[in-house]
Every structure is written in C-alpha cells, then in structure tokens.
Design a protein around this nucleic acid. Structure first.
Lengths: 136, 136
DNA sequence: TTAAACTTTGCAATTGAGTTGCAGTATATT
DNA sequence: AATATACTGCAACTCAATTGCAAAGTTTAA
C-alpha cells in the first residue's frame, strides 16, 4: 500500500508530487468514494485547492473517476485495474439519505440502454437513494 | 393548456397562486426538464426565491419531480399522470454534455436493482451522459 | 552550476446554485 | 372590518467548486 500510490501515478503518467501522493493514498485507504471535503478533513494540512487540482488531474489521467451521488458533493474513487472509465466499467451507487454514505453496488451490472438514433453515450451516473442497513 | 396548470394544482391540493401558475405553465410548455435558472430566465419578472419555493412546494405535493442530471443544476419536470414519484415511475435521463439538454429516455425501464440486505430504496437517479443527435 | 522555463502549491478571492430571514402584500376566516 | 394565515420580493447568506496570482519547487539547457 505504501508504494502503490506512486506506482499508480507512474503508470498513469502523472507526476508523483507530494500532494498527489497524499490524496491518492487517502483514496486508496478509504474504500468508499470520498468528497473533496472528506479528503480535506483527512489531510488536515493540505490546501483545498491543491487537493482539488490533484483530483482534476487524476480524473483527466483516469486515476480516479467521479460520482455524482446527489449529496451535493462530487465523490471520487480510484479506478479499479483495467477501468477506462468507460460506461461499461460503471456500476450503481447507493446513497444513504440519512448517514450520507455512498456505497458501490458492484453486484448489479448496468444494463445496455437503448439510446435514440445518433445519441452517443460517454458516461453514466446511476444512483439509488434510500436508507442503508445501518439506518433503516 | 391554459386551464391545465390550475387543474393540476387543484387536484394536487396546492393553492393556485400567481407565481405557482406561471411556474407550472412554464414547465408544461417546456417538455424537457428545466432548472431553476431556466425558469427564472423564462419568467423574467418573477423572483428567483419565489420560483424556488414554488418548486419545493410542487415537489412536496408531487406536482413535479426533480432530476439530478449532473449538470450542477437540479432540473424539474411535471409528474405524468399516475406518477407517485415512486422508484418504479422513474426512467433514465440523457444529459448532453455539449448542449446541456436533458432528455427523458422513456423507452428503457429501470431494472430491478438487487440491494444488499436491509437496504431500502427511496428513489433513484439514473443519468446517461454523452452527445445527443444534434451535437454528435 | 547557474539561469531560464515550466510545474506545483498555498492563499485569497470569486462564482454560482441553493437557501433563508424578514417585512410587506395579498388572501382567507371570524 | 379585524385578525390570522399564506404568499411574495428583496437582500443577504451558505457552501462547494473554481480561479488568479505569486511564491516555492523542479527540470532543462546553456
């Protein structure tokens, strides 16, 4: 785990700077998707805008992908090996309206969606909202 | 169409005030989901917060439902007849990343999603992003 | 090895959607 | 009409996201 962040950055062709390593490690240590604020809280001495820019860079270089779970905050998760952030790599997310936790629903594949003529899918964002097991 | 807004408000037990009628008419006239800002632009002499509060009331009384299409703005659409805003009434949306238009994909039913034990679904928000026929 | 060029970072300030407090206006109730 | 209740418009605020800028760090080239 110690080295993993650096390795990933190298593979994805991102300069392994201090902030980037810290942010990526933080994401790797926390299995659930994390918001900018979550990361900011976790890395107490790192500037928000630096984290923000790291995340933007990560997204661009496909180190992480973002999830809009309707919490009002974008969440970020490390792309699993082989993930190209293609639609077929995506899965449903579950957002608990009580504890604000975002779960990945890995068991359900996203079905093929028939789009109208000439519509081109780039990505998808599928979120189920409700109460998780702890809150229901 | 002229009378329809008032009728809907009556049926859904919402006081048919001036702003509410204007907002609902605006939504009825525009088939695609509209954001607060869209409505504000459309109704040039109506205050934003009044529109906002109308929409909140509408949501509560199930006159409209909201869609988070990842554009950063919540969109609103009039509930079709029989819609209870239940998960099973929901459908996919398509958000064009170029022209920022949100389409309803009514042809695809949302599949039943297996949730982990004791997870309770309240609502769902399914958005496909990409390019629409005009932009691709 | 030093200077120039480029990248990254931290701070402060701005944006923009959403939301709220409050006082004035309109509408309904007695 | 007098009172209560609901609605509206304005201004101000919140809060996440984003940007401008200068300082610090790193790389490249002379």
């Amino acid at each position: 785990m110690m080295e993993k962040a650096e390795e990933i950055l190298k593979i994805k062709d991102v300069n392994p700077t201090a902030v980037r390593i810290l942010v990526l490690r933080y994401l790797l240590e926390h299995l659930k998707p994390q918001s900018l604020k979550d990361i900011e809280k976790g890395l107490m001495h790192t500037d928000r805008s630096s984290i923000f820019r790291s995340l933007k860079t990560f997204e661009e270089k496909k180190v992480v992908h973002s999830i809009e779970d309707g919490s009002g905050m974008i969440k970020y998760a490390v792309c699993p090996t082989g993930c190209n952030c293609d639609p077929q790599d995506l899965h449903y997310h579950f957002y608990c309206t009580k504890c604000s936790y975002t779960y990945c629903l890995l068991d359900n594949p996203i079905p093929i969606i028939k789009l109208p003529q000439n519509f081109k899918m780039q990505r998808a964002n599928m979120v189920v909202k409700g109460l998780c097991n702890k809150c229901s």
